[in-house]
């Protein structure tokens, strides 16, 4: 199909109502940026799932990071997105005002030079992410072990995508097809979604991030509703079996664990923690299961399940804005509420 035909097909679709969920924060952003919602028939609904790793990190994780950052002799290093995420009482950025030592890094590997320069300080990296980011943490572990660096630890909140999709579907999410995450699929391979496609008799489309790539993938999904099919519309970088080297490296240092998702609760086998033999590099990740809502009326859980649009949450745009986020989905630029808010989606 030519692009014009695809556009016509998507805007003219008049079959049963369908819900398509994207589970990647970059997809959420690209959909808004390209103005895609307005190009679809009103029978096609786009839902934003748990695709932002920062958004699904429980409050007790942020609390523990704050505690560490206020501990003498300890520095917390993190990607920028996490700094403003509220814990049960405050965020890392607020704690910074009270003397917490927090630094922002663009790559976890940058921590090596810092740790070697300041051997008396313990550096804790906030290792948050999905399959996309986990290989970098495994690489960092590789360096820590081989260089014998003992003053770097990880506080992990590492999550995996297929398990949480399974959880959503098993708990009654009304979704007819998934835009499978492009970057995650580079690591896992497109085939990682095949068991889910079979189990729930629904299509998955691995998609890139350009407007045209998203339209092509959406059209593919709409045509295959009800079919257990995994379509790879991002073959430039995604293969069927994924990056075996990265997967092996992850496996060497990390093992599966039941993980707590902010707003959702515990999802079996959906996390990764350091294997027991490397537990000396862990800064207390195992105990972090508690998840307190900052605002009782926050609907992040239902938004993440695709049961509610961000705009249907009573807090959205009123007390919950990017300047003063109440729930995690509003904090990160990849969060669904943040994206809906700044793009005025309705």
């Amino acid at each position: 199909m030519k692009l014009d035909e695809i556009k016509e097909f998507l805007s003219g679709y008049d079959g049963p109502e369908i819900n398509i969920m994207e589970v990647c924060g970059s997809h959420t952003g690209a959909i808004a940026k390209n103005g895609i919602p307005g190009m679809l028939s009103d029978k096609i609904h786009l839902l934003s799932g748990p695709g932002c790793p920062v958004c699904v990190t429980p409050s007790s994780y942020v609390d523990r990071l704050i505690e560490l950052s206020l501990t003498p002799g300890t520095v917390v290093a993190t990607f920028g997105d996490l700094i403003r995420v509220p814990g049960s009482e405050r965020s890392l950025s607020e704690a910074k005002g009270e003397g917490a030592r927090v630094i922002m890094l663009y790559s976890p590997l940058d921590i090596l030079a810092l740790a070697e320069k300041e051997p008396q300080t313990t550096f804790v990296f906030a290792a948050v992410g999905f399959e996309t980011t986990t290989p970098v943490y495994a690489l960092l572990m590789d360096q820590l072990v081989s260089r014998g660096v003992n003053n770097v630890k990880l506080l992990t909140a590492i999550k995996t995508m297929p398990e949480v999709i399974d959880y959503l579907m098993a708990n009654g999410a009304e979704i007819s097809g998934f835009l499978a995450p492009g970057h995650v699929s580079v690591v896992t391979g497109a085939d990682a979604f095949k068991p889910l496609a079979d189990k729930y008799q629904m299509p998955f489309a691995v998609a890139g991030f350009k407007g045209t790539e998203l339209l092509v993938a959406l059209a593919g999904l709409v045509k295959q509703i009800g079919c257990p099919k995994v379509m790879n519309f991002y073959p430039q970088v995604v293969t069927a079996s994924g990056n075996q080297k990265a997967l092996a490296l992850i496996d060497r240092y990390f093992e599966p664990v039941d993980a707590v998702w902010r707003g959702l609760g515990t999802v079996a086998g959906s996390g990764r923690v350091l294997r027991a033999e490397f537990s000396r590099f862990d800064a207390g990740s195992a105990a972090l299961s508690e998840d307190v809502k900052v605002n009782k009326a926050c609907c992040c859980d239902r938004v993440l399940m695709g049961r509610m649009k961000p705009t249907e949450c009573p807090l959205f745009g009123k007390v919950c804005t990017p300047i003063k986020p109440q729930g995690a989905c509003m904090v990160s630029t990849e969060g669904s509420c943040h994206s809906w808010f700044v793009n005025h989606r309705t």
């Binding site: 692009l3 556009k7 808004a32 940026k33 390209n34 103005g35 895609i36 919602p37 307005g38 190009m39 407007g211 045209t212 339209l215 793009n343 005025h344």
Partner: peptide, 9 residues
């Protein structure tokens, strides 16, 4: 008006 013909606020 986006390159692919959508509209973005």
């Amino acid at each position: 008006k986006t390159a692919i013909g959508g509209r973005r606020r």
